[in-house]
Design a protein around this nucleic acid. Structure first.
Lengths: 205, 205
DNA sequence: CATCAATACCTAATGGTATTAGGTTAAATC
DNA sequence: GATTTAACCTAATACCATTAGGTATTGATG
C-alpha cells in the first residue's frame, strides 16, 4: 500500500456517513435520505449494502469493537500485578472511548440498551472485553493482592457499571469535559473495594 | 366495561396502555394506532391528551418517579448509621423496581440514554433521588464510619453505576432471574470501597 | 326553553420516511 | 459480440405520526 489516504469503498463510505449522522443527530432523527445525500447515492443504493436502517446501525461499531478486543491483550502485555492491570485496563478503555466518541455513542447510547443487542456480533466482543476483568480479579485473588474471598462477577459489575455510568454521563453532556475527570478518585474507591480486609482486631460497624 | 377494578379516566387509560405496549414491544415498535386500539379510541383522540408520541413516553414514568421520591425519606426515616442507610436505600430502590418493571424499563432503557432526558421532569426527580446518596456519604464521612477523605461524588458514581448496571442487565434479560441475585456480595464490595483505610499495622483510633 | 360554549371524541386528510420493484449503464466474462 | 454481473438509478408502495375539520353530548346562561 502506498502511504496515502485509503480510497474508501462504497460500503465504508456509507458506514462513515451513518456513524457521523447517527452520533450527531440520533438514530431516529437521521433518515435514510440524509445518509444517501451525504454519500452521493440514492436511497435504494444503500439497500444493496445493508438490509435496512437497523442493520446499518449495528454494523457501524463492529470494526471498532473488534479492534478494541484485538488491542487489549497487547496493551495489558507485560504488566505485573492485578491492580496495575486493572488500572491499565480502565485507562486504556477510556482513552479509546475518548478517541472515538462517535463509535462510543452508538455502542453506549443506541446499542447497549437495545433489546436486540444481545444478538449482535458486538455483544460477543463486549462480553470478551469484560471477561478479561474476571481474569484479572481471579489473578488478584490468587496472588493475595486482592481479597481472597472476592466474588469476581460482583467485582466486574462494579467496574463495568461505574465505567459505563461515567461514559454515558460524558456522552450525554456532549463530551463537554475531559472523560478522565475524577477517574483517579474513582479508581481509588474501586481498589479499596477489592483489597483484602485488613487482619487482626478487625473493623467495627 | 368488562370487569375493571377502578373507573379510570381516559388519560390514565392511555398511559396504562402505552406503558404496557412500550415496555413489551419497545418504543419504536409501538404505533399510535396500537395504543388507540388498546384504549378503544381514535388516533386523533390521543392528541387531545398528549402533544405527541415522545411526550406520551416521558409522561409515563412521571408519577412513579415522583412517588419514589416521596417514599424515600419515609423509608430511610429512623435508620441509624450511614452504612445502614446505604443498604436500606439500595434494597428499597431494587424492590420498587422489581415491583414496577414496566416503569423501570421506560426509565432505564428508553429515557436515561435519551438526549432529551435532561430536560424532563423525571430527570429532576432522579437527581434528587441520587443526591440523597451524597448526603449519606457526607454523614458517613463525618461520623467516621466511612473514609474521612471519601469523595462523595465519586462514591455516588460507584453506587449509581453499579445499580444501573444490575438493573439494565435484569431488564434486558426480561426479568428472567431475581433482581436481588448477588446483591449481598455486591453491597459488601461497595461497603469496602467506602470504609476508612486502616493505618498500617491494623489499628484504628 | 333556546343558545352558547366546552368536552370528548370522530373520519379523513397530509406529509414524511423506510423499503421495494423494476429498470439502466458499463465493465467483466465467455 | 453476446451475456452476465455490479453498481447504481427513478419511481412506486406502504406505513405511520400528526393535523384539519368536523359531530354529538352536556351543562350552564340569559
Amino acid at each position: 500500500m502506498a502511504g496515502n489516504k485509503k480510497p474508501k469503498n462504497t460500503k465504508e463510505r456509507i458506514i462513515d456517513a451513518a456513524r457521523m449522522l447517527f452520533s450527531e443527530r440520533g438514530y431516529r432523527e437521521t433518515t435514510i435520505l440524509d445518509i444517501a445525500r451525504e454519500t452521493d447515492l440514492s436511497e435504494a443504493a444503500l439497500y444493496e449494502y445493508f438490509k435496512g436502517k437497523e442493520d446499518l446501525l449495528i454494523t457501524i461499531p463492529d470494526l471498532w469493537v473488534s479492534q478494541l478486543l484485538a488491542d487489549m491483550e497487547d496493551q495489558l502485555f507485560g504488566i505485573e500485578g492485578a491492580f496495575n492491570k486493572l488500572r491499565k485496563y480502565i485507562w486504556w478503555n477510556f482513552r479509546r472511548i475518548e478517541q472515538s466518541p462517535w463509535d462510543a455513542k452508538i455502542v453506549y447510547l443506541f446499542l447497549k440498551t437495545n433489546r436486540n443487542f444481545m444478538e449482535t456480533e458486538v455483544y460477543l466482543n463486549v462480553k470478551s472485553l469484560y471477561n478479561k476483568l474476571v481474569e484479572i480479579f481471579e489473578e488478584g485473588r490468587q496472588s493475595g493482592e486482592m481479597n481472597p474471598n472476592l466474588d469476581a462477577h460482583a467485582a466486574r459489575a462494579l467496574v463495568v457499571g461505574t465505567m459505563d455510568h461515567m461514559v454515558i454521563r460524558w456522552l450525554l453532556t456532549d463530551m463537554s469535559y475531559p472523560l478522565f475527570k475524577g477517574l483517579d478518585e474513582t479508581f481509588q474507591l474501586l481498589a479499596n473495594a477489592f483489597r483484602p480486609i485488613p487482619p487482626a482486631g478487625g473493623f467495627r460497624f
